[in-house]
Amino acid sequence: MAENFKKSYRFAYLSSLYITILLTLALGVFLYFESILNLFFLIGFAVICYTICFLIVQYRVEKFIYRRVRKIYDDIEMLDVDAIGDSPVTTDMRTLIKEVEKFAQQRKSEIERLKIRETYRKEFMGNVSHELKTPLFTVQGYILTLLDGAMKDPKTLEKYLNRANKGVERLIYIVNDLDMITKLETGDLNLNYTNFDIVELVQSVFDLFEMKASKKNIALTFDMNYTEPIMVHADKERIQQVLSNLIVNSIKYGKEDGTTEVSIEDLIRNKVIVRVTDNGEGIAQAHIPRLFERFYRVDKSGSRKEGGSGLGLAIVKHIIEAHHERIYVESDYRVGSEFSFTLEKVKKFPVVDVGTKTA
């Protein structure tokens, strides 16, 4: 920490002035009565007296205040605070108060953020343990039943092994999602950018989940007939994952005989926005700020019955942000929801006619 400090001379200036005036007046009265009053001598005395008083008062005040201020800085420096640690020590009270207030406000904000993170950490650990515990106990139960003698029956053996396999598949699904979201958060997942038709990709996702949607008689449709391709520049595989997660969610929480509609619109110059809209359950406004958190579920009981790892929307958010794009959500409870995200549109270059000119 720098030892140079800002000096405020106001106190020393006024104190020295008062002392000089008092002593000069006293000396002038004394010389007058002694009949040896000399104006030049009196002015010289005033100048010397003022200089000496100013130096002594300023030095003593700074020494007195500096020791106490220095202790404050040292106490703060023990907390590894860069904001104050890099600033020079000042004996100016107004500046010091501002710095300490700024420091206190920063620490208060930091403590609040740490408390929020601690709450999220506890929730995350509880959710992870719950998500892993359920399939683990399921697999363990089937295996123990088989070991107790059920494996002697070929039909029971096959049935229980298939159920145990489903439990293992769910574990692998959760672990893979956790691995992916960790890579996305740390920036270790490389994106393979290509140019592709987003309309064709949406249609392929529709085809993939057509049977799942038909079980609830949910129509997967575009908002209009797209006759021409809309080319975007992104990681095709990851954007397919985004669309899959959003469409699967709309099917899970959609109502019977409902609709999941996808629209693709120009946003600004080189951007398009893809909207996935449904007329399902909708989401209460209180849940929307936390919707993209890992393992956060709006309906704790219903969500688990529907399956999934609880990481789908968190992965969606990280994939879109890894593309340096934005994702939005709008929802009305019991009316429906709309998830939308932006993508970079492939620039179209004008075709130049190089034909020969005619006279």
Rank of each mutant, 00 (worst) to 15 (best):
C49M: 06
Y50G: 07
I52S: 07
I52T: 09
C53Y: 02
F54E: 01
F54N: 01
L55I: 10
L55D: 02
L55Y: 03
L55F: 08
I56E: 01
V57N: 02
Y59L: 06
V61G: 01
V61A: 12
V61L: 15
K63I: 02
F64D: 09
Y66Q: 06
R68H: 13
V69N: 03
V69S: 01
R70M: 07
R70A: 11
K71Y: 10
K71I: 07
K71M: 06
D75R: 09
D75K: 04
I76Y: 03
I76P: 00
I76S: 02
M78K: 12
L79Q: 08
D80A: 13
V81Q: 10
A83K: 10
A83V: 09
I84V: 14
S87L: 15
P88A: 07
T90P: 02
T91W: 00
D92Q: 08
M93K: 10
M93W: 05
T95N: 07
L96E: 04
K98T: 15
V100I: 13
K102D: 15
A104Y: 12
Q105S: 15
Q105N: 15
Q106A: 09
R107Q: 14
R107D: 05
R107P: 00
S109M: 11
E110F: 10
E110R: 04
I111D: 02
I111V: 14
K115N: 06
R117P: 00
R117N: 14
R117D: 09
R117W: 03
E118A: 12
E118I: 08
E118F: 08
E118H: 12
Y120K: 11
K122Q: 11
K122C: 08
F124R: 04
F124S: 03
F124H: 03
G126M: 09
N127I: 01
V128G: 02
V128Q: 02
H130F: 15
L132Q: 01
K133Q: 10
F137K: 06
T138F: 05
V139G: 01
V139L: 04
Q140R: 08
